[in-house]
């Protein structure tokens, strides 16, 4: 499978948006090299604002730029985006009904060598509590590009988790995307694996292939938007397969697993297992080590499915 570096796709998508719309501006907090957006700065130096290591001020300034009619994208590591700027994002951007696009990079175990201090396992949950906020996490370079375009066009704030590294391409270039509408990547009858983000969508697809060899038919849904979550699609597949397994590079509390559980509990009781971090802090290690450590692997997904099939 062809690979593309996610951050390069992000920067290129922002450049294309900025070429068409002079309201697009970019803010960074001394992580421009990490975000990979230096090429944006080189192209649009006057529309790029590096605010230094001051994330709260960065998000507040982004809100002010939005109040002045701009469409600001603001980047930092997800841990800082969610924890350190929460009140600024909540009040100055969201409560003020402005139009700030916040990007939290290095979701969950992809923080790897930066370790537990930098490993956001809670950002989807924190962000999901902000009224009207759109919260999403693309799974591959194509969905990243399409969803960033949709976020730019959306009138209101968004929070995106961005996995920065090179990632296999899943979708074809002409695949259409909508925020809030999940993608059925693979149909199936026995179980539905609902996954979010680069790591878990890729692991889920491999798990479905592995299960196929054992005559288990697994559907895989890329639920890229956790808020608003695609209830219709969840209910359709709950009725169709009777077992849902959610997969997220995040705490199982308050993120995708909780969002799916809420939909199921109120509408269509169905068996549900949630795969993700179970009330633990992050720690340091390679991404592979951490995926094993927190059960974010093909093998673990396949085991959970088999244990819970009737």
């Amino acid at each position: 499978m062809a690979q593309l570096e996610m951050r390069a796709v992000y920067a290129q998508t922002l450049i294309e948006l900025a070429e068409k719309d002079d309201r697009i501006v970019l803010l960074e907090a001394d992580l421009m090299k990490a975000s990979g957006t230096t090429i944006f700065k080189n192209k649009f130096p006057e529309r790029t604002f590096n605010m230094g290591v001051a994330e709260a001020n960065m998000v507040g300034v982004a809100a002010g730029l939005s109040a002045g009619g701009k469409i600001p994208f603001a980047d930092t590591f997800g841990c800082f985006a969610a924890r350190r700027t929460y009140d600024q994002f909540f009040i100055s951007a969201n409560y003020a009904r402005l139009n700030v696009k916040l990007t939290g990079t290095d979701p969950g175990v992809s923080s790897a060598y930066n370790g537990g201090t930098h490993m956001p396992f809670e950002d989807l949950g924190i962000m999901r509590n902000i009224p009207k906020l759109v919260v999403f996490e693309p799974s591959d370079p194509v969905s990243l590009k399409k969803l960033v375009q949709k976020a730019a066009a959306h009138q209101g704030c968004t929070y995106m988790r961005l996995h920065r590294k090179p990632v296999d391409i899943i979708y074809t270039e002409d695949e259409p995307f909508e925020l809030g509408k999940g993608k059925v990547l693979r149909d199936g009858n026995d179980v539905t694996i609902v996954a979010i983000g680069v790591i878990m969508v890729h692991e889920a697809l491999k798990a479905a292939e592995m299960l196929k060899s054992e005559n288990i038919s697994a559907a895989v849904i890329d639920m890229h938007t956790v808020k608003p979550v695609d209830s219709e699609l969840i209910l359709q597949y709950a009725q169709k397969t009777g077992l849902i397994v959610t997969c997220e590079n995040h705490q199982i509390m308050n993120g995708l697993g909780s969002a799916v559980a809420e939909v199921l509990a109120e509408n269509c009781p169905c068996r549900l297992k949630r795969i993700g971090v179970e009330d633990e802090f992050g720690e340091v290690g390679t991404q592979e080590y951490l995926q094993e450590r927190f059960g974010m692997t093909v093998g673990h997904i396949a085991d959970v499915v088999k244990k819970n099939l009737k």
Binding site: V25, F49, N57, G60, G64, S92
Partner: peptide
């Protein structure tokens, strides 16, 4: 009212953002 405020400390950042937007425009 030009900006929503109430959580102290945030208005200075918003004002900076508005000032930057004015300069761009």
């Amino acid at each position: 009212i030009d900006m929503s405020t109430g959580s102290l400390g945030q208005g200075i950042s918003a004002a900076i953002g508005i000032a930057l937007a004015n300069r761009l425009d």
